[in-house]
Design a protein around this nucleic acid. Structure first.
Lengths: 351, 351
DNA sequence: ATGAAAGCGCTAACAG
DNA sequence: CTGTTAGCGCTTTCAT
């Protein structure tokens, strides 16, 4: 409106101080809740707040962060945002953090070590306050350096055995153990386990639960590992699973170690024209909308998504808000899974 | 190791300048690719680069951004990261932007106006360089203020009719038009349309395509709107759809206006014990893993996810990198959908 | 080529 | 209570 229209300058703390005839320091104190502490009168504080509100002044967070060293940003480094498991966890974490005044930046690693290093390095440059990471393989060094630099960091979904750190994971071994036992109880004779090439803790745990159950029952194991790439499209993997199943028809049940393998596995089974569970029983690690609606419905080892999110953000915020570094205790949280029994694993009559 | 062990200070530009006996300015120029321009000898430039590499010096981005006003961060504000459509788009956008040196911060609006305002305001405080937004309802004012402040902003998936802005959307009307015609051709008599309460452009377009097809064919329309909340759990919606279908058995086909409605709709149909497509034909707007694997497979109006991502990031980066504000031309891009015909909409024999 | 220095906008210590 | 001031770490102009 005025003749200075084009000089659309943002309001600065200086502007508001001058307008009110108070000092910059006063404004800063009031804005940072230090009015009482600095013995600033309620009336004045009130006046400042009102004016700030009126002109819609927002402090420049860059300047603030540069000065204080705090950004109130948490970096969430997950495997793949297009995977419903991670998407849901991310969404929940974001929600919880938001309420506590923290913002989340999330990035997908695609389980790619180099990309993850980039990500961590970028986050460091931006001075985020803390990390929640689902680490891919080969990232010990970077995570260790985060830990050593005292940046609050919690690992999610999997941990790094060689490092002492906070983490929040799931008891995957128990999940697959229960799943395998359930299949055997249902009369399946030969249970195979389909997993990925990854040696990460969560995948290995799932494998171990399966192994334990089969060993206890004195059954032969069949473990098949596939290479899982992100964003590759389904053809390769589906046809590899297709061949595997076709060439191993003595196996009458399969446990898939994650939802991607399960989905591709179901596609392969459909293409083979096999009936579930008559020809082949199926259990998936990780639940999915699909499994409720598939015909037949698919038994799944469900992860406590809500609880994973809640615990990881809680642990992180606790570290973030505790001033002393004294309490160097690490929180390692292991959450139970639950077996959701549906049609794909039921040979005996439903009740 | 040394006695100054605890003073684990980050390397600063000053440190590296001093170590090399050059000026801070020189280092800065070299680091910012202005060596040539400043006529700095290749030898010197090389030396600087090598030392920087050696000590792993990383400029403090906060300081840099404060000084330059550029953050190289793009804010991606989408509806719901736990929806596979948005998750995939987000993942693709992140990937493309990453390669071009930009980082993405994404947040979900949950289609909640207040939260979106918060988000935009937080992004402004952090001085991000540009926005990609899937705007919820009631957000015209904030988006308009972004536009007026000359922040590059592209709208995604839907636009705001009252605003002149860049956007990248899909031709939803054509999608549902084709879908409805396909159903009628297959001999379905009464096609219903299930959508949400939202009046956003993408939802209204889908509705219009349906209306047009039915009007042209001289058929009666049946449009049902449901309230869709995020993160609410499925019970309420499933049972509402259940009742709707149960009370409208004269309709022998339904087009669901998005993937959430489709998934819940399929659940409702399963609970009702209806056969697809014999009792009821089904088409979903938006494809999903589930639909390929469902029995029968579900016909879907697929959105060109890759192309949506590519176009929106391209448009944004173009705005970001063009210096002059002269070319105030807006890019409005409308991408075609494709009808993927599967079992759920086929009454006539497959060929 | 380079050194000095002026900020970017804010916090917080210090002396009144 | 307030004014002044020294940075936070970097870019960039200017004079040399």
């Amino acid at each position: 409106m005025s003749s200075t229209d084009k000089v659309k300058k943002r309001t600065l703390i200086h502007d508001i101080a001058r307008h009110l005839n108070v000092s910059i320091a006063t404004v800063s104190f009031v804005l940072n809740g230090k009015a009482k502490e600095q013995r600033i009168s309620d009336a004045l504080a009130e006046k400042v707040l009102r004016y700030v509100e009126e002109v819609g002044y927002k402090p420049n967070q860059l300047a603030k962060s540069l000065r204080t060293g705090k950004t109130h940003v948490i970096g969430l480094i997950i495997e793949d945002i297009s995977n419903p498991f991670f998407a849901t966890v991310a969404w929940l974490i974001e929600k919880k953090a938001f309420g506590r005044g923290y913002r989340i930046i999330y990035c997908s690693t695609d389980n790619n070590t180099a990309k993850t290093k980039d990500l961590i390095s970028m986050f460091q440059e931006r001075h985020i306050d803390g990390y929640i990471i689902a680490p891919p393989e080969g990232i010990e060094e970077e995570v260790n350096s985060l830990l050593r630099s005292n940046k609050p960091t919690v690992l999610l979904d999997r941990y790094i055995p060689s490092l002492i750190s906070d983490y929040v994971v799931v008891d995957g071994a128990d999940g697959t153990y229960q799943a395998a036992r359930h299949l055997l109880e249902q009369g399946f004779e030969n249970v195979a386990f389909v997993t990925s090439e990854s040696r990460q803790t969560q995948m290995e745990a799932r494998l171990q639960g399966y192994s334990k159950a089969l060993d206890e029952a004195g059954r032969a194991k069949n473990i098949k590992r596939f290479v899982v790439n992100f964003g590759e499209g389904l053809e390769r993997l589906v046809s590899e699973i297709y061949s595997f199943i076709k060439n191993n028809r003595e196996y009458d049940a399969i446990i898939f170690a994650n939802n991607i393998l399960s989905i591709y596995g179901l596609e392969a089974i459909a293409r083979l024209g096999l009936r579930i569970p008559e020809d082949i029983g199926v259990i998936s690690f990780d639940d999915h909308d699909l499994f409720r609606l598939h015909s037949p419905t698919i038994t799944a080892i469900a992860q406590p998504v809500e609880s994973l999110a809640e615990n990881s953000i809680d642990v992180l915020l606790r570290k973030l808000e505790q001033t002393s570094e004294a309490e160097a205790l690490v929180d390692t949280i292991v959450l139970p899974t639950s077996l959701i029994i549906r049609g794909s694993s039921m040979r005996k009559s439903g009740r």
